[in-house]
């Protein structure tokens, strides 16, 4: 009898624990049907991508994307995706993208997209990421033609290449090229407004546990380099963690903080006299910008926003 009670008790505790966790995990699904614009042109599109060549018989209409940057790309081409892996959090889109985005179905996490929802949408094109979705490529291929781009780890120039591939895949190659020219124009204009860019600028994501520099190999770091700045953290690793000691040694002349949470480790560091010794702090060049603009969206729209932020903070007044 005693044994029985004990078993029931532990079973009850464990089930309650699991249930409560499931309950707090699943919220905020975007279950809305989407009108897709009909614009049929019967021509085959052949795309070479990271895991092979995919042939599309016609211009795809129902597109599912598994990375934020693909949504950014599609918005510039006036193409609405029907499904997005948005980590179940629409707030992660930058405002400019969200404005243009119609209703879509959330596919869940970018790391573990929900295959069932994905296949129920019956897409005719899936755009996936090499690092996150290599393992499920065969599965995705079984659902719809899939192109896989090396995107999550990509730097700025690689992103521009990926952008053209996406434009080609959705049958808007010419529009894509034109938009890219426009983008380069905008960046060039920003460069003009910046004037002298001979300084070290460090972008970094911060949270309560650490300070994660975006190195010269990262997307933001390579973007800064493309407009003339120098990312002081040189590393093969895109997001190395810096200690305060290493940050002081690196001594950037300007810092862009991309906080992931409200309170970050920088709040602690500010109390340390060493923080005051950093050039960027001495000259009041520590800026806080939106992480979703700088680190998550990673496309033309977000790069233009980054350029804007940089001009606003570092431009000649």
């Amino acid at each position: 009898m005693h044994q029985w009670i004990k078993r029931m008790l532990s079973f009850a505790v464990i089930s309650a624990l699991i249930l409560s966790l499931i309950a707090c995990g699943n919220s905020g699904k975007n279950e809305a049907k989407t009108e897709v614009q009909k614009n049929n042109k019967e021509e085959a599109i052949e795309i070479e991508h990271a895991l092979g060549t995919t042939v599309l018989d016609k211009r795809p209409e129902k597109i599912v994307v598994l990375e934020f940057s693909y949504t950014d790309a599609l918005m510039t081409l006036d193409v609405q995706p029907i499904g997005i892996a948005d980590d179940d959090n629409p707030d992660l889109f930058m405002d400019d993208v969200k404005e243009k985005l119609n209703d879509y179905t959330s596919i869940g996490s970018r790391y573990e997209p929900n295959i069932e929802i994905l296949s129920s949408l019956q897409p005719d094109l899936i755009i996936a990421d090499l690092n996150h979705h290599k393992a499920i490529y065969d599965q995705l291929k079984g659902i719809a033609p899939t192109i896989v781009l090396d995107d999550h780890q990509a730097d700025y120039n690689q992103m521009l290449d990926n952008y053209l591939l996406i434009a080609k895949a959705v049958g808007k190659e010419a529009e894509g090229k034109a938009r890219l020219e426009e983008h380069k124009q905008k960046i060039e204009e920003a460069k003009q407004k910046l004037g002298d860019t001979d300084m070290t600028v460090l972008p970094a994501v911060t949270n309560p546990e650490g300070f994660f520099a975006h190195s010269d190999h990262s997307y933001t770091g390579s973007f800064l380099a493309s407009i003339g700045f120098d990312d002081p953290v040189k590393s093969e690793d895109s997001y190395p963690e810096l200690s305060l000691e290493q940050l002081v040694e690196t001594n950037p002349q300007a810092i862009f903080l991309l906080p992931a949470t409200e309170n970050t480790i920088v709040d602690e560091w500010k109390k340390n006299p060493l923080w005051q010794g950093i050039d960027a702090v001495k000259t009041n060049k520590v800026f806080t910008v939106e992480r979703r603009d700088w680190a998550l969206s990673r496309g033309l729209i977000s790069s233009e926003k980054m350029a804007e932020d940089i001009v606003e903070n570092l431009g000649e007044k």
Binding site: G25, D87, N89, S109, R110, Y111, E112, N207, G210, F212
Partner: peptide
């Protein structure tokens, strides 16, 4: 995994 955004470096 479900809260990847707020728990980045966890």
């Amino acid at each position: 995994i479900m809260n990847e955004q707020s728990t980045d470096s966890m």
